[in-house]
């Protein structure tokens, strides 16, 4: 038996559908309203441009006191995203606040695609490529390549 969905989750879900964010979509599963299928388009001008990335997002029992759990399902070459799709993003951990919401989190993730931060990596191997000046063009090329290969609509 499960408790009814908190009003907040209902409202957030409604707003995600009625006022969608360009380049981002999130829709809950029919049989589990806390589990969302997410699509994020790679931001224009980034090496992920043209890609459509799919993620899974889960709202834990004590959401919004705790952040949503979210990870990439689409393979992606990014210094802050590891092979399992886990994302290194401050607002998903220490800097989470219950005043944030699914919408703001997804925007942060989209922004992370536009601005990789190899200085604080989750994926050491990728970050090393990214950081070394001589390797950076190579890294960006790989990211483009992976986007074309895996994040193809």
């Amino acid at each position: 038996m499960t408790a009814p969905l908190p009003k907040r989750i209902i409202k957030e879900t409604e707003r995600l559908q009625s006022e969608p964010v360009p380049g981002i979509s999130a829709s809950p599963h029919d049989d589990n309203a806390r589990y969302f299928d997410v699509m994020v388009e790679g931001p224009g001008g980034s090496c992920y441009e043209g890609g459509v990335f799919s993620l899974e997002l889960f709202l834990p029992d004590d959401y919004p006191m705790c952040p949503p759990r979210i990870r990439f399902l689409t393979r992606i070459y990014h210094p802050n995203i590891d092979r399992l799709g886990r994302i290194c993003l401050d607002v998903l951990k220490n800097n989470w606040s219950p005043a944030l919401q699914i919408r703001t989190i997804l925007l942060s993730i989209q922004a992370l695609l536009g601005a990789p931060n190899p200085d604080d990596p989750l994926n050491e191997a990728v970050a090393k490529q990214w950081k070394a000046r001589e390797n950076q063009p190579e890294a960006i090329k790989t990211a483009r390549e992976w986007t074309r290969l895996y994040a193809n609509k």
């Binding site: 990870r71 886990r86 290194c88 401050d90 998903l92 800097n95 942060s108 990596p121 989750l122």
Partner: peptide, 17 residues
């Protein structure tokens, strides 16, 4: 976007209690 810190989102699934 805020500062990025290292994290480990999907730690081994924990039992609910």
């Amino acid at each position: 976007m805020g500062r990025i810190v290292s994290m480990n989102l999907f730690e081994a699934a924990q039992p609910p209690f």
